[in-house]
Design a protein around this nucleic acid. Structure first.
Length: 436
RNA sequence: GCGAGUAUAGCUCAGUUGGUUAGAGCGCCUGACUGUGACUCAGGAGGUCGCCGGUUCAAGCCCGGUUAUUCGCCCCA
């Protein structure tokens, strides 16, 4: 029976597998990616921060920029009952920086490394790989202006991608300079495309003029043609920015990160300075990136803190899972170690106690609670993917033994019950090693 | 926000120019098998044809609206 309700537009339920379709929304896949992320982040020293699902809308306007698409049309905002204008967070960096300042997190030593797993919300047109509620994995390295910081974020992200099975994502990096460079370059762009702009609508002209750098990643053929012959932003970089960028590239090369310099990467948010980057994978839909990030040296100051150079990355969890699915990379489901089978009614309470003992020993144990017959219990054992069925009936109880069946190989053996835990531990270890 | 396609069983999909009681495969349940799953065979359950309205003697099929989804534009994760 189907409910008349469905998940709101652009949102998804994440439910236990196996599902026949939409496999990316199976819980175990999310748990796998999230735990790999936390473990890689921790290897680099990043500690988790959790911020609220919504913030005062002003935080995002101030940080992302009024003209950015996120702020101008994708904000999921509303008035609360206290007449506060709030927004569900569209990205993780600004809230993390707000919390960083609010709690003086940087006062215990610099630099600060934070990571997070966030719900994010963008009120856009949903589609494959584009959702109104999306999930981002993020890392922020706060308080270092060193090119090593930029490189560390990129290297850690690459490392993480590898860890989940995305072997060679394309790494695109660019340098967009500081405010003076962008102001200067904006003028260059505007004068270069003067003819094109004259043909545009008032609205379009205004939008493009507000942030001309954004024109660089256009897909509009006419605008592309108009941009033909435009000098690159890197030609206008200060010596400082140029040196910084060269050093970042050098460190990436030393660390065997296969990146390409793509002058078209400009990013949609105003707070970026110098280094920006994206990872893409050909398996994902056209124009969809796996992650995006960069340096944001001015952001913290803008939020009221003292100047604090920082760099970070936001990774799209849904897109990672889509990519893994396209590549046919299997993510193993968690399997219970044993399913206890009561062969006779007499055995039920005995089996209950055995379950308790095995759980104390940290085994994952399932058993029948509906007095079903032995055949149904085996069927259930198979369905939940148990490694072993442990059968207890009158014979076993009489002899203080257990019968163990390996459900994958159908091999069956018998043991004294006192040896069961140790036998399981050793055998499961062997299986795990064989699988790796 | 604009344009186009799709919506039938838990899943993937058939369903003729509008015409009796809407089908298949997979999955699920039961039995063959009263101490053995995954394989085989037999049977069974499960549908207000997304939702609301209209046209018609008659609508899964035609028309309008609506909701969701996919693709393109836009943009990003």
């Amino acid at each position: 029976m189907k409910s008349k309700y469905q998940a709101p537009r652009g949102t998804n339920d994440i439910i236990p597998g196996p599902r026949q379709t939409d496999q990316i929304f199976e819980t175990h896949r999310w748990q796998f990616v999230e735990s790999e992320f936390l473990s890689v982040a921790w290897q680099y020293g990043y500690e988790e921060i959790r911020t609220p699902m919504f913030e005062e809308i002003d935080l995002f306007i101030r940080s992302s920029g009024e003209a950015s698409d996120i702020v101008s049309k994708e904000m999921y905002d509303f008035m609360d009952k206290g007449d506060r204008h709030v927004a569900l967070k569209p990205e993780g960096t600004a809230p993390a920086m707000r919390a960083y300042l609010e709690h003086g997190i940087g006062n215990v030593g610099s630099p600060t490394r934070l990571c997070y797993i966030n719900h994010s919300f963008r009120y856009g047109r949903p589609g494959k790989g584009r959702y109104r509620q999306l999930h981002q994995l993020g890392m922020e390295l706060i308080g270092s202006s060193s090119p090593q910081a930029d490189a560390e974020i990129i290297i850690a992200t690459y490392h993480f991608m590898n860890a989940i099975g995305i072997e060679s994502p394309k790494v695109l990096v660019n340098c967009i300079g500081r405010v003076d460079t962008r102001t200067k370059y904006a003028e260059v762009i505007l004068s270069h495309v003067k003819g094109f702009l004259a043909e545009q609508s008032e609205e379009q002209r205004e939008k493009l003029s507000k942030n001309p750098v954004r024109m660089l990643d256009t897909k509009d053929e006419k605008l592309k043609a108009a941009l033909e012959g435009l000098p690159q932003i890197t030609d206008y970089l200060s010596d400082e920015s140029r040196t910084h960028f060269e050093r970042v590239c050098q460190i990436l090369t030393e660390n065997e990160i296969p990146f390409v310099h793509d002058a078209g990467i400009v990013r949609g948010l105003d707070y970026y300075t110098d280094t920006v980057f994206e990872f893409v994978d050909s398996e994902l839909g056209d124009g969809l990136s796996l992650c995006g990030g960069g340096r944001y040296d001015g952001l913290i100051e803008q939020l009221g803190g003292k100047p604090t150079p920082s760099v970070g990355v936001g990774i799209g969890l849904e897109r990672l899972l889509l990519t893994l699915e396209e590549k046919g990379i299997e993510i193993p489901r968690n399997q219970p170690d044993v399913y206890l089978v009561s062969a006779t009614e007499n055995a039920r309470s005995h089996v209950q106690q055995l379950a308790r003992e095995l759980r104390v020993e940290m085994f994952t144990v399932q058993l029948d609670i509906d007095d079903r017959n032995i055949k149904q219990q085996f069927k259930a054992a198979d369905r939940v993917g148990a490694r072993f069925a442990v059968i207890i009936g009158d014979d076993e109880m009489k002899q203080n033994k257990v019968t163990i069946k390996n459900l994958a190989s159908s091999e069956q053996t018998s043991l004294p019950q006192s040896e069961l835990a140790e036998w399981l531990e050793n055998t499961l270890l062997e299986i795990t090693m064989a699988e790796e």
